[in-house]
């Protein structure tokens, strides 16, 4: 075992996969960094070096400030809610109650659907007048709300969509972790007269911590990476109230054709993700104790 890797074999095993990976991960990341110091080429003049001009634009961009606020609220709102719901769902599904398979099907179904289908389903659900949401409001005699069409509710409405889509996936990971909790620990606690609540908070929850780290990191990356529903449901509107960072990159680059600013925003995104992942990992990892 662990023989030296002969050069020829190394080429066969590693060259093609690594080339592809570098070409579509490392190269574009570095390229974005380089391009962020240049302006856009036009038909009359080639692009020229502009130093930090794009970054000055970035700092003065009011739309970006709004979008960063949206993204922060979106992450802070969706991640804890999705994790909390996922733990609750996992406990319910794990409890061997009547109707378990129906619960599991209902909780996990949204995870199977493409985000674009989820977006269509919720677009209809929220539709003013015809949608189920406004009909339910109507039954209680409440005035209809234009969920996606008003600046106060659009972001929150998108957050519900994300939680609905993701909680079921996280539930699966918690389900796996719950099944790995040793029965004898719980039995011992029960013998000592601990209540079910105490067993959950003092034994089960600490053992779920590694899962929570894994899920939280994934949820954070997804909160920045998944914008399909924004494109389909609101296009960031009204008035940028539901725009997220990746959606902004998409719009700046492919609608406004401003590739230089798109590259600058990409650099921002990569840095942000790197910092967030590092912070989250170290903070949670220090508290985690593995068996």
């Amino acid at each position: 075992m662990n023989k030296r890797l002969p050069f020829g074999l190394a080429m066969v095993l590693l060259f093609v996969p690594c080339l592809l990976l570098v070409a579509f991960t490392h190269y574009p990341a570095l390229r974005a960094l380089l391009n962020s110091f240049w302006n856009n080429a036009s038909s009359r003049r080639p692009s020229k070096f502009v130093g930090v001009e794009n970054y000055q634009t970035l700092l003065e961009d009011d739309r970006l400030a709004q979008i960063m606020l949206n993204s922060t609220l979106y992450a802070l709102g969706t991640i804890p809610l999705a994790i909390g719901l996922a733990i609750g769902m996992a406990l319910l599904v794990n409890a061997r109650l009547p109707g378990t398979s129906l619960m599991r099907l209902s909780f996990f179904m949204p995870t199977m659907l493409p985000m674009i289908a989820v977006a269509n389903i919720w677009l209809f659900f929220y539709a003013p007048g015809i949608g189920l949401a406004s009909q339910i409001l109507g039954v209680f005699g409440l005035p209809p709300i234009n969920f996606l069409g008003s600046t106060e509710t659009s972001l929150v409405s998108m957050m519900f969509v994300a939680v609905w889509k993701e909680a079921g996936l996280f539930m699966i990971f918690y389900l796996a972790a719950l099944q790995a909790v040793p029965e004898n620990l719980k039995d011992a606690a029960r013998l000592e007269g601990a209540s079910a609540t105490r067993i959950f908070f003092n034994i089960v929850l600490p053992l779920l911590r590694p899962t929570t780290i894994f899920v939280a990191v994934n949820a954070l990356i997804n909160a920045f990476r998944l914008v399909d529903h924004v494109i389909v449901m609101t296009r960031g509107g009204p008035n940028n109230s539901s725009a997220l960072l990746l959606y902004y990159i998409y719009e700046v680059t492919f609608s406004q054709r401003d590739f230089a600013y798109g590259a600058t925003l990409t650099v921002l995104m990569v840095c942000l993700l790197g910092v967030l992942a590092a912070v989250q990992f170290w903070v949670l990892n220090r508290k985690a104790h593995y068996q």
Binding site: M1, N2, K3, R4, L5, L9, A10, L14, C18, L21, F24, T25, H26, Y27, P28, A29, R31, A32, N35, I221, F224, R225, L246, I249, Y250, T253, F259, G262, A263, L265, T266, M269, V270, L273, G274, A277
Partner: peptide, 29 residues
């Protein structure tokens, strides 16, 4: 199965894709 020089660094470089996934690099790709 094999050991080779810089294998640790290479592995770390590969794992970068877990974070910086293709969705984020749409502009340059």
């Amino acid at each position: 199965r094999y050991r080779f020089r810089w294998s640790g660094i290479l592995f770390a470089l590969i794992m970068v894709q877990l974070l910086v996934s293709p969705e984020i690099l749409i502009v340059e790709n």
